[in-house]
C-alpha cells in the first residue's frame, strides 16, 4: 500500500512518516506542486497511492489547490468516485473552517487537527478501511 505524505514542516514530516509507516510504504514531499507531480507519476508507473495525507498550508500551491488538481487528474483518467484516492487533510489552524470547506465540497475524505492525536489518527485510518500491516 502506497501512502503519500505532504507536509512542509520538517518535524511534522518525520512524525507523520513514523506514524503511517505501519500502514504501508510512505513517500514524503514538501509542497503542493511536488504532491501533484508525485501523484500523477505514481499512476503513470501503475503503482498509484491509496492514501494522501496532506497539510492545508503548503508552499508553492496550497493543500486545497493541490487536492483539486489531484481530483481533476483522477477524473481525466476516468476513475469512478469509489476508486479515487483517500485524502486526509491536516491543519494546525485553530478553526477548522478551511478544512471543513474542503471536506464539505466532498473532495477530502477526512480531516485531522494538529497537533495530531495518535489515537484519533488510528481511528480515522480504520474508518477509511486501512489496517496496520
Amino acid at each position: 500500500m502506497r501512502i503519500l505524505i505532504v507536509e512542509d514542516d520538517f518535524g511534522s514530516r518525520v512524525l507523520m512518516k513514523k506514524l503511517l509507516s505501519v500502514y504501508g510504504s510512505c513517500d514524503v514531499v514538501i509542497d503542493g506542486e511536488e504532491a501533484v507531480s508525485s501523484f500523477k507519476l505514481a499512476w503513470e508507473e501503475k503503482t498509484p497511492y491509496s492514501l494522501v495525507m496532506m497539510d492545508i498550508m503548503l508552499p508553492e500551491i496550497d493543500g486545497q489547490e493541490a487536492l483539486l488538481q489531484i481530483r481533476s487528474y483522477e477524473k481525466s483518467i476516468g476513475l469512478s468516485d469509489k476508486d479515487r484516492v483517500k485524502v486526509i487533510m491536516t491543519t494546525a489552524l485553530g478553526d477548522p473552517k478551511n478544512v471543513v470547506t474542503a471536506y464539505n465540497k466532498g473532495e477530502a475524505s477526512s480531516y485531522i487537527v494538529k497537533p495530531v492525536e495518535i489515537a484519533k489518527l488510528r481511528e480515522e485510518m480504520t474508518k477509511l478501511g486501512f489496517e496496520e500491516q
Binding site: 505524505i5 510512505c26 513517500d27 514524503v28 514531499v29 514538501i30 511536488e34 508525485s38 507519476l41
Partner: peptide, 13 residues
Amino acid sequence: SNVLFRVSIAMKL
C-alpha cells in the same frame, strides 16, 4: 529516504 524520493521525482520530470 524521502529526499531521494523527491529527487527521483524531480529527475523523472
